[in-house]
């Protein structure tokens, strides 16, 4: 006889379902709208100052931008592995994946701070040029989302350590995970737009 427990697990994705709270998804849509407006404002401002934008973009450290893309994507991958582990009742393993994701997010913060320090040492500020205004404000707006994302990942890590997430009780983990993926998603436009396209 198989254990009756197996019968209580719902079949995988039989009906369409949003992973996480509806509230976080409404919030995510608002964030995507805000970043979208910001990206369009950058692009149309650049259209009026092409020589300036192209020259100052050249001075950015594209390697640091690419490294930060890798760190965000890897953190997102680790979060996916954490969700999968929790779905398989492996809460301790889920907690370890979340800790690894926090490590990647923290490394992103360190790399970004090095970029900011280098920029400030060159006298770059919000008022030094339209490009620098966008570069600093866009990346700092995103940076604050990474910080909030780390706080959320920290809460998920604690929840996973306490064994709070398991099949049928995944909402908290999926809600936090969706926020983190949004932080990653907007960077996938920010990096090529601000660091590469000219």
């Amino acid at each position: 006889m198989s254990t009756p427990l197996a019968l209580t697990i719902p079949p995988q994705a039989a009906t369409p379902r949003l992973a996480g709270d509806l509230a976080i998804w409404i919030f995510i849509l608002a964030e995507l709208l805000a970043f979208g407006v910001f990206f369009a404002a950058y692009a149309f401002t650049r259209a009026n100052h092409i020589a300036l934008f192209d020259a100052e973009q050249q001075a950015l450290h594209r390697g640091a931008g690419a490294l930060n893309t890798v760190l965000l994507l890897t953190a997102s991958y680790f979060v996916v592995r954490a969700v999968q582990a929790a779905e398989h009742r492996a809460a301790a393993i889920a907690a370890r994946w979340l800790l690894a994701a926090i490590g990647c997010a923290g490394s992103f913060v360190v790399v970004k701070l090095f970029e900011y320090v280098a920029a400030f040492e060159q006298g770059i500020s919000l008022s030094s040029s339209p490009f620098h205004m966008f570069y600093l404000s866009l990346t700092f707006f995103h940076f604050m989302h990474v910080i909030l994302g780390m706080v959320i990942l920290g809460a998920l890590w604690r929840g996973a350590r306490e064994g709070r997430y398991r099949p049928g009780d995944m909402n908290g983990l999926e809600t936090g995970a969706a926020y983190w993926h949004m932080v990653d998603l907007v960077w996938l436009i920010l990096f090529p737009l601000v660091y590469v396209i000219h």
Partner: peptide, 16 residues
């Protein structure tokens, strides 16, 4: 890349 994050990582492939 965004499509992978949206459909797979965010699991919207299984959403309405």
């Amino acid at each position: 890349k965004g499509g992978i994050v949206i459909l797979d990582f965010m699991a919207l492939r299984h959403a309405p």
